[in-house]
Design a protein around this nucleic acid. Structure first.
Lengths: 150, 150
DNA sequence: TTGATTTGATACTAATTTAGTATCAATTAC
DNA sequence: GTAATTGATACTAAATTAGTATCAAATCAA
């Protein structure tokens, strides 16, 4: 039962990397190479982040992308939501036909509690927090580069 | 972001139905019809539940399936685990190559906390509890049949 | 003992989602 | 002008999920 897909995973890695040097612009190419993310795939992910205002971009030679929101205000929840839609345990209440019997679905009650919990938790973790954690780990290891692997 | 797939969903519905009449045997056919679950699909799901000892079966005319474990001891967690494997947020630590850098994966720390929480919560909810909830809803509605829709 | 009904085992197909690739236009720095 | 870059979008491939089909073995009842 996997929760994060590659889109979210790569997006978070990209945001962490960009967030560690918020002032500087980097090309998708360089980012792709440094993080081991397939270039064209990363490009599409970045474009999505740009559309959502989390990343800014500049075209042309010496162009590239940079983080445009405060990392402390970019929540993992938002990133997941962009690429995987809102947290939902099963599909009954959103997709296809709407549940004909929503109010009385037993499983729904228990399960939405958990759904809500997951959502809340992802809503508490920011990219800034992840960066802080990463810095702490790096410091403990004497400044070596730590590869990100969610 | 869907958490339950159809296997788990149907398996839970089947277990709830069987658990409501723990003494009686019912054929997969009848169960399929009463719950609106595709017959052959349900059969495979039942066989899996049988292999895991949650359901018993008898071949032949007047055969069928019945619940074989105490509904209060069948946890949603176990059912999900059977059909979707253990809860895991992203794939890095299990599949493909093992993460080369597990100990230092930042995302991993935050994310495993949430993973653990989900797992714990699913481990607290039993099929028996769901049945009790369902009965409560039915009673409140004056005994009408309530269709299960997780 | 034969035929209908049922599970056991397993192979197969179809649909959907996820992951990844490719292409070309527009922009920009030099 | 040219190289490097993003914008937009179409396409392909792989993996997962959902669903179907088939036939053998067991059981019951007439």
């Amino acid at each position: 039962m996997k929760i994060l897909n590659k889109h979210s995973d790569y997006a978070l890695r990209a945001l962490i990397t960009l967030g560690m040097n918020p002032a500087s612009r980097i090309s998708a190419k360089a980012l792709s190479e440094s993080q081991g993310i397939p270039y064209q795939f990363l490009r599409r992910i970045l474009q999505e982040l740009i559309r959502h205002g989390l990343v800014s971009s500049k075209q042309g030679a010496a162009g590239g992308v940079a983080i445009s929101a405060d990392p402390d205000r970019i929540m993992v929840r938002e990133v997941i939501s962009i690429f995987q839609g809102p947290v939902q345990i099963s599909e009954c209440m959103f997709r296809r036909q709407l549940c004909s019997n929503r109010a009385n679905c037993v499983l729904r009650h228990e399960i939405m509690r958990i759904e809500q919990m997951v959502d809340d938790e992802f809503g508490k973790v920011s990219v800034g927090k992840l960066i802080a954690d990463l810095r702490r780990v790096e410091a403990a290891r004497g400044g070596q580069q730590v590869q990100q692997q969610p």
